[in-house]
Design a binder for these strands. Structure first.
Lengths: 217, 217
DNA sequence: AAATGTTTCAAACGTTTGTTTGATTTTAAT
DNA sequence: ATTAAAATCAAACAAACGTTTGAAACATTT
């Protein structure tokens, strides 16, 4: 078989495994279910990969590579308020856009709440750069009136609002049934989180302990 | 054996099972690990419960009953700002307080991200009343200037900031290592989320479409 | 066409899983 | 003390699991 259809077999396997792993987790996923969904023989996993764990590792790397390529980090310039709004909408679309393969972000969400040994690499490789970009935007918005710790807390508050809708989708559908319904609900969500967070930042600036300008220290 | 030590056997089993289930999930948890931690024989699960699944059900019900008893819903009265702050701190302590058995909220977090058929009952029985209380506080703070949908979105924004620190603890320890360190970090967290959210609400009131008073319609 | 390397497959292997069984011990009541 | 019920235990069970194996099918090269 040609190398291209060989890699296509590997990829079919990774794709099917990604779905299953993201649905039930590593331990509960069975090699039989994975190979069955890929339309391949049971032994395929141990032929293309050493074992089930190496397949899981390959799946995570694939999802991470896709996440980096289709990077939702906006290089948009302009007012920091606009860049914040772009950042939030990009993150929400990355997490919720039904056009993307659902298992990518579902698997990441699983890895964050129930991490395996691969979490550290995933964070440093894919997530930390984006969090640092967000930190830069927030520092601009803070205008020197927030401490590093306050910036971090605000950053966590913003990220939390975004990942909430990915990690707790079943809860939201049951508790806030109207929030995910109509078309362009992602846009509305981005509008809300942006406004809410900008307001939150303003409040932090008001109540933050005054910092002396460096020149006066 | 007395009925009290009989129920104590059942409870030892539930306690051990709660730990294991919360750590690795239902499927990956083994009856042998559970009975071993409880210091009991392998057959104990099928003696006190019909099977592993009924044990899981009992564990969830136990966690829910504890959550309702040690209700973190503050009946505090006074300014809605104070009641919001009390609500947030109560929720955070419920989720993060190291004095409480860690597996209670860990298991709930697991159930929210990877729900079983028992999620609906858990939400209606334990969580919805609190969310409705939060909605009441927010409605007061909104002063009639926010739509029901905006109230719901703000409610979700506040809840998301709280559960974030429970559901993504490993991520936070790695990405924001300074946020969970010192003593009374829960109090500081409650301060931040309260201020951030009050600011967010103010911003929503500013940018919300003006609603005509009912009397004028 | 023959030979070689690659991929697929059914079958089986050894573990681990949840559950059952029947004997044994412990408890409670007479 | 006797008896009956309840609780505990070691042992075994069938089913499901990840993995291995060796032959068959396929593709590629000589």
């Amino acid at each position: 078989m040609s190398t291209e259809s060989k890699s296509s077999s590997r990829e079919r396997l990774i794709e099917a495994a990604g779905e299953v792993f993201s649905e039930v987790g590593f331990k509960a996923a069975t090699v039989r279910e994975i190979t069955s969904r890929a339309g391949m023989n049971l032994a395929a996993v141990n032929y293309y990969f050493r074992d089930k764990e190496e397949l899981y590792s390959a799946v995570l790397m694939h999802a991470q590579r896709c996440a980096i390529e289709a990077s939702w980090v906006s290089e948009s310039s302009g007012a920091p308020e606009i860049r914040l709004r772009d950042f939030i909408e990009g993150m929400l679309r990355h997490l919720l856009d039904p056009l993307r393969p659902a298992w990518h972000s579902r698997l990441m969400a699983r890895e964050m709440t129930a991490p395996t040994r691969m979490l550290r690499g995933l964070l440093d490789g894919g997530f930390r750069p984006k969090v640092e970009l967000l930190g830069g935007i927030l520092r601009e918005l803070a205008d020197g009136r927030l401490t590093d710790e306050e910036i971090d807390r605000a950053s966590a508050s913003i990220v939390s609002q975004c990942v909430f809708y990915r990690q707790n989708r079943p809860v939201i559908l049951h508790l806030y049934p109207d929030l995910l319904g109509d078309e362009d609900h992602i846009g509305k969500l981005a509008d809300h989180i942006t406004a809410f967070s900008l307001g939150g930042l303003e409040q932090l600036k008001k109540s933050s302990p005054v910092r002396l300008p460096v020149a006066l220290l």
